[in-house]
């Protein structure tokens, strides 16, 4: 009878492992990675999965073994041991070493994501320079949509000032982020009301937008999902499964879940620029004599 309990624990733990094992096959796994540094993040994830998986199996295995083996028996006393210093040292040192390894193994990736040059894996020696970007985009979060602003010529003269104040000739689009493959994109993230978080699962990237601040985000997609068709002047998806979405990851009120955007990675810079020119033309058509900052594209964050 007492064995039931050990077996129950074993079963639950095996089921947990089982779920992890079948999930990738069920499509319940990390979404497709399209970021230049994404592979590093995924590697790190697997590294930690292996390390934690190892300790999971060791600890749960020991627990189940003890439960099955050491139940109370008539006339048998437990061992009388109060501790063992050697053992304590061993099981302090091993996890500590593994953990410190995990800790340092991730600093290069972290630096890469932040596009900070480091001359060594040791975090203290960050040089702290940002890369040159090919494309600047300002993203303004508000309840409940993302407002993207693209500069003419991709790179504004003074990016910081441009991100702050904008320019009369900017292109305004709601909930659509357009970039091209292999572009080094710099996003200036802002919000006009509460905190939002710009989350692009496929890019493994997430950044909170803080009121009153402009947060930088840098990334470079390594895969395209759309093509610009010059005849229809429309965007075509390359294949049906390549819809890449943008979500809001910080609670921002009732419709937090509806801040859904889409990421369009054009195949080439030319494609992007054609799309830009065409959309800007349309915007000019819709503009009133006064500058109307946002075109009618705003759909209130509806999907």
């Amino acid at each position: 009878m007492y064995r039931c309990w050990g077996l129950l624990f074993a079963a639950v733990n095996l089921a947990a492992i089982g779920l992890f094992a079948v999930s990738p096959a069920m499509g319940w796994w990390l979404p497709k990675n399209i970021a230049s540094y994404g592979a590093d993040i995924d590697h790190l994830f697997y590294l930690i999965l292996v390390a934690t998986g190892f300790f999971f199996i060791v600890t749960q295995g020991t627990l189940v073994y003890c439960m099955l083996r050491f139940n109370a028996k008539e006339g048998v006393k437990a061992m009388n041991i109060h501790g063992n210093t050697k053992l304590e040292i061993i099981w302090t040192a091993i996890p500590a070493i593994i953990l410190i390894y995990i800790g340092f193994a991730q600093t290069p990736t972290w630096a890469k994501m932040k596009y900070i040059e480091i001359d060594t894996w040791f975090p203290v020696r960050y040089k702290g320079t940002n890369i040159e970007s090919d494309l600047h985009v300002t993203v303004l979060g508000r309840q409940w949509e993302w407002r993207m602003r693209y500069p003419q010529g991709n790179i504004p003269a003074d990016p910081q000032a441009w991100a702050d104040l904008g320019n009369l000739h900017d292109l305004h689009v709601v909930n659509e982020l357009h970039v091209w493959k292999d572009a080094k994109v710099k996003i200036h993230l802002k919000t006009q009301d509460v905190i939002h978080s710009f989350f692009m699962p496929n890019l493994r990237l997430k950044q909170d937008a803080l009121p009153g601040k402009i947060m930088p985000m840098v990334f470079s997609p390594i895969e395209a999902n759309v093509r610009y068709n010059p005849t229809t002047k429309m965007i075509e998806e390359l294949n049906p499964s390549s819809t890449w979405e943008i979500a809001c990851a910080e609670l921002c009120g009732g419709n937090h879940y509806r801040m859904r955007g889409k990421l369009f990675v054009h195949e080439t810079k030319q494609d992007y620029e054609r799309w830009f020119a065409e959309t800007l033309k349309n915007q000019r058509l819709h503009e009133s004599p006064r500058l109307q900052p946002i075109v009618a594209a705003g759909n209130g964050g509806k999907p």
Partner: peptide, 9 residues
Amino acid sequence: LATLWGASI
């Protein structure tokens, strides 16, 4: 876990 080892549960 070590407390459980060799115990009389």
